[in-house]
Simulated assay, not measured.
Amino acid sequence: MPFAASLASAAQQAQAAAGAAGVRIETVEDPERLFAVSRLLAEVWATPPGHDPLASDVLRSLAHAGGAVHVAFGPGGMTGATAAVFGPPRGHDLYSLIAGAKQGGRGVGYALKLAQRSWALERGVATISWTFDPLVRRNAWFNLVKLGAHAAEYTPDFYGPLDDGFNTGDRTDRLTAVWHLNRLGTPAADIADRPDPDAAPGPDGLPFTARDGRSLWCRVPEDIVAVRGADPARAVAWRTAVQDVLAPALADGYAATSMTRDGWYRLTRP
């Protein structure tokens, strides 16, 4: 697809996603509205007072440096936001620092990412990168299947300890997602393609790995945040079990390229 055509297509896709979610999306730079963005992100991430994920002065600085803060506005006001800065020189990469939407904002996160993608393509960006928790199944599905990113890097305890409504009491291991902006979405991994699971059980007593000559498969829990709240020891066991599968596989040249609807990562070699 010619570059000009891809720009137009990306803009149309972003507009359609915003319309489907019932929001309008703007880039925000003025301090007053950035303060509101910072408070919104604190609400989404359930951080204690004074521990906003990104303070308004930081958001102001990254926007002034050429990055972008995209904000979704619904009938009731701000409902989601995402912020990004440019990556290393000559990398043609945008680094997405954070993204979040209020509960019930169905489609808002997708609309924000497509707006970010359209903005990036207009500036010659080829990829957007960000990190996500490999145990959070809904985020993995969104990143790998809905957007079409892949992940080939595992970093243990990426941020160190975090005190918020999602990470407290657990290591902040992260996968790095890379989204090539000339693609949008990938088919979900077909569970029929998965070989018979390995005998070794996961922390819930059920099989959680499988492998064949082409792919490696690894299952994650349905809701790790709920597991952390109900059984912290089991959450830690999940962290260790999944790290023991994903980290060496990615170091050996595999990449997480898709996921089944019931939470199995599919890792393949390029």
Rank of each mutant, 00 (worst) to 15 (best):
G169R: 06
I191F: 08
D170I: 11
R171I: 01
A189W: 03
N182L: 13
P156M: 06
Y159R: 09
F142Y: 13
R174F: 02
N143T: 10
F158Y: 03
T186K: 10
N167A: 15
L175S: 01
F142A: 14
T155H: 08
D133L: 02
G148W: 03
R183H: 09
P161G: 06
T176F: 06
K146R: 14
R183K: 05
I128D: 05
L162P: 00
D164V: 12
T127L: 03
S129Y: 04
A149F: 02
L184I: 02
G148T: 03
T131R: 00
Y154S: 09
F166Q: 05
D190Q: 04
W130C: 11
R183Y: 08
R138W: 11
D157L: 00
A188S: 14
H150M: 10
D173P: 00
D133K: 02
I128N: 15
V145R: 07
W141Y: 14
W141C: 07
A189K: 11
P156H: 03
F158C: 01
N143L: 06
V145C: 12
L144D: 09
L147P: 11
A140G: 15
D164C: 07
T131K: 10
G160R: 00
F132E: 02
T176I: 04
R138C: 01
A126T: 04
A149D: 13
R183C: 04
D170C: 09
P187G: 02
A149M: 10
A151Y: 13
A177W: 07
D133Q: 05
T131A: 13
T186F: 03
D157A: 14
L147Y: 05
I128C: 14
K146N: 13
D164Y: 10
P187A: 12
P161Q: 03
L181F: 14
Y154R: 05
A126H: 07
D157G: 08
N139V: 12
S129G: 11
V178K: 08
P134G: 03
P134M: 06
P134K: 03
G185K: 13
A140Y: 07
L135Y: 09
N139H: 10
T176D: 01
L147Q: 14
I191C: 04
D173K: 00
A149L: 12
Y159M: 06
W141T: 02
F132W: 03
G165Y: 02
A149W: 05
V178Q: 11
P187L: 08
H180M: 12
A140F: 04
A149K: 02
W179I: 02
W141V: 09
L181D: 08
L147V: 13
V178Y: 00
R137A: 14
D170T: 09
D173W: 12
A151I: 08
A189N: 10
N167R: 10
G160L: 02
L181P: 15
D164G: 10
H150L: 08
Y154G: 04
F166V: 09
L175F: 01
T168I: 06
A152G: 12
